[in-house]
Amino acid sequence: MRFTLHIWRQENAHAKGQFETYPIDNISPDCSFLEMLDILNESLINDRIAHPVCFDNDCREGICGMCGLYINGRPHGNDDGITTCQLHMRKFNDGDEIWIEPWRAKAFPVIRDLVVDRSALDKIIQAGGYINTTTGGVPDANAIPIPKHVADMAMDAAACIGCGACVAACKNASAMLFVGAKVSHLALLPQGEVEAMDRVRSMVEKMDELGFGNCTNTYACEAECPKLIKRQNISRLNRHWIGSLLGRDKK
């Protein structure tokens, strides 16, 4: 297959970037998107055309959340429920023009080319996305009864890999789906419920401080999340926030 790639190139965080165009040929339809970029980089290096294109990746099997490219107007490209590393070239047509951009958000500054600094998401986790106790050994499965549907909701929320596609997709660069997922998977289970009110406060305060936008219920996040995290988690986040405003009883 043949493609024309338009890739965002930017020397460093302070440089002014621009798109560069690279034609590429002889790509197998079974090639993954990142493998295609590897092939491009090999030729850029071997032919001494330019520095290789920088992009984030690690596991290449959709579990680590490192990869993330904005491809033709969609985070993780034109498919649902996948990460960029799970995107394959057969999803494109021969001869397509492909525009590749980094995530865009004030909270995600570009480091180089397509690599952005997503440590803002880590800072939100550090603000409260944990349980403040040593949990000890694994208790018997029947020691703490948890209804199946609650366990399922918690598990679905816990699937978030922190890729930031929700922020990238949102017209407001809001991190509400991410925070909603992180608040939910802990608050739904008895071990996490204890600190739920304090957790939601500190995580939302951090989110605001880092310059993410406000949710306006556009749900682009839900449409683009590779782990199919649902907007119900954002509503739960709102609910817990109201709870923390009204019901946080402290001496």
Binding site: N72, E101, K171, G213, N214, T216, A223
Partner: peptide
């Protein structure tokens, strides 16, 4: 505030499946 949260926008128009109503709000 939401405009400020993304100082540099995308080159390509958004193609995610979203609720248009929200953008028109």
């Amino acid at each position: 505030e939401n405009k400020m949260a993304r100082p540099q926008g995308y080159h390509q128009p958004q193609r995610s499946k979203t609720h248009t109503g929200s953008k028109l709000q």
